[in-house]
Structure formats: structure tokens, C-alpha cells
Amino acid sequence: MATKRVPQKPVATDSTIADVVETLDKPVEYVRRVLEKLERCKRAHGDAQVRLGVRGRAECPNYLIEYVREDPKTHERAVYQDAAYSGSTHRELAPKHIEDARNWSPEEMNITAVSALIGRLRNPRAPSSRFADED
């Protein structure tokens, strides 16, 4: 018996997790697992951000965890890759996946934005800010 293949929904090349959250298979679980990786990176490097993989499945896109460091003398900021992860298993991918810039969105979300996103997913009726009802 042949199985019917469902065509993949493409991920826009400038997407963030917030942009694709509606298409994720299990949005709360996906964002929670990404947040775990971000927290690990922040503990190790003092900073963490995530870029979305744009060449895979929109239901569980791969993601790249990075951190930013500022040179104390020149004050120039440089971005360093920590690790890339499978969006379906959340296991680390081989380093070769990081190297091809076409795999990753140019837009990133920092750990604070991802924390806020999971808060909204877990409690969608909560006000999005403390000023939401002060119009």
C-alpha cells in the first residue's frame, strides 16, 4: 500500500520561531526544548540567541544556537555558533550543517524573546504586557 506524501510547507527565509509557531507540530514542546538549549548556551557563554533553519520542515525546523561576544578594546560584537539541532529530535547536528549560511534565517530571537513566547503559548489569555489594559 502506497502512502500519500504531504507536500512540505516551506519556511520563509527570514523567519523566526515566533513567525512559524502556528505551523509547529507541538509548539509548546518545541519552544521549551529550544529554550533548554538557549539556557545551556547562556550558562556557558553569557549570551544566547537562536536562528531558524529555513530548508527543512515547517512543522519542526532545525535551529542554530549562537552567542554574541563584544571585544573589550574595540567594542566590536562578534557572533559565534554554539551548536545546531534537529527540530524533530532536538539532538545536536554535525558541524557541517552550521557552515552553510543558506540553511539559517538571518533573523534571530534572543533568550528573552523565546522565554516570552513560551509564556504566551502556555497562557494565551494572559495580557502580553503589564500595560495591556491601560488604554
Score class of each variant (00 low, 15 high):
Ala2Val: 12
Thr3Tyr: 10
Lys4Ala: 14
Val6Gly: 06
Val6Asp: 11
Gln8Ser: 15
Pro10Thr: 02
Val11Gln: 00
Ala12Pro: 13
Ser15Pro: 09
Ser15Val: 07
Ser15Phe: 06
Thr16Gly: 02
Thr16Asp: 01
Ile17Ala: 04
Ala18Tyr: 06
Val20Glu: 06
Val20Gln: 08
Val20Pro: 03
Val21Lys: 01
Glu22Trp: 12
Glu22Ile: 12
Thr23Asp: 04
Leu24Cys: 04
Leu24Glu: 01
Asp25Lys: 07
Asp25Met: 05
Asp25His: 07
Lys26Thr: 12
Lys26Ile: 07
Lys26Pro: 03
Pro27Gly: 03
Glu29Arg: 12
Tyr30Val: 00
Val31Leu: 03
Val31Asn: 02
Val31Pro: 00
Val31Cys: 01
Arg32Asp: 14
Arg32Thr: 14
Arg33Asn: 15
Arg33Glu: 15
Glu39Asp: 15
Lys42Met: 12
Arg43Ser: 08
Arg43Cys: 03
Arg43Asp: 10
Gly46Thr: 03
Gly46Glu: 05
Asp47Leu: 02
Ala48Gln: 04
Ala48Ile: 04
Val50Trp: 02
Val50Ser: 03
Leu52Arg: 03
Gly53Ile: 00
Gly53Trp: 00
Val54His: 00
Val54Cys: 01
Arg55Pro: 05
Gly56Leu: 01
Gly56Pro: 02
Arg57Thr: 02
Arg57Asn: 09
Arg57His: 09
Ala58Leu: 02
Glu59Gln: 12
Asn62Phe: 04
Asn62Pro: 08
Asn62Ala: 15
Asn62Met: 09
Tyr63Val: 01
Leu64Thr: 08
Leu64Glu: 09
Ile65Arg: 01
Ile65Thr: 03
Tyr67Asn: 05
Tyr67Gly: 04
Arg69Asn: 11
Glu70Tyr: 11
Asp71Ala: 06
Pro72Gly: 05
His75Asn: 11
Glu76Gly: 09
Arg77Pro: 06
Arg77Leu: 12
Ala78Arg: 14
Val79Ala: 08
Val79Glu: 09
Tyr80Met: 08
Tyr80Phe: 15
Gln81Tyr: 10
Gln81Leu: 06
Asp82Glu: 15
Asp82Arg: 08
Asp82Gly: 07
Ala84Trp: 05
Ser86Phe: 00
Gly87Pro: 08
Ser88Leu: 11
Thr89Ile: 07
His90Asp: 10
Arg91Phe: 08
Arg91Leu: 12
Ala94Ser: 14
His97Pro: 01
Glu99Trp: 07
Glu99Met: 10
Glu99Thr: 10
Asp100Thr: 11
Ala101Leu: 12
Arg102Val: 07
Asn103Met: 08
Trp104Gly: 00
Trp104Asp: 00
Ser105Met: 04
Ser105Gln: 03
Pro106Val: 04
Pro106Asp: 03
Asn110Ala: 06
Ala113Arg: 15
Val114Lys: 07
Ser115Val: 08
Ala116Ile: 08
Ala116Arg: 15
Ile118Gln: 08
Gly119Phe: 04
Arg120Asp: 11
Arg122Cys: 11
Arg122Ser: 13
Pro124Met: 06
Arg125Gln: 13
Arg125Ser: 14
Ala126Pro: 07
Ala126Asn: 10
Ser128Met: 13
Ser128Pro: 09
Ser128Glu: 15
Ser128Phe: 13
Arg130Asp: 15
Arg130Met: 14
Ala132Phe: 13
Ala132Trp: 12
Glu134Ser: 14
Glu134Lys: 15
Glu134Val: 15
Asp135Cys: 07
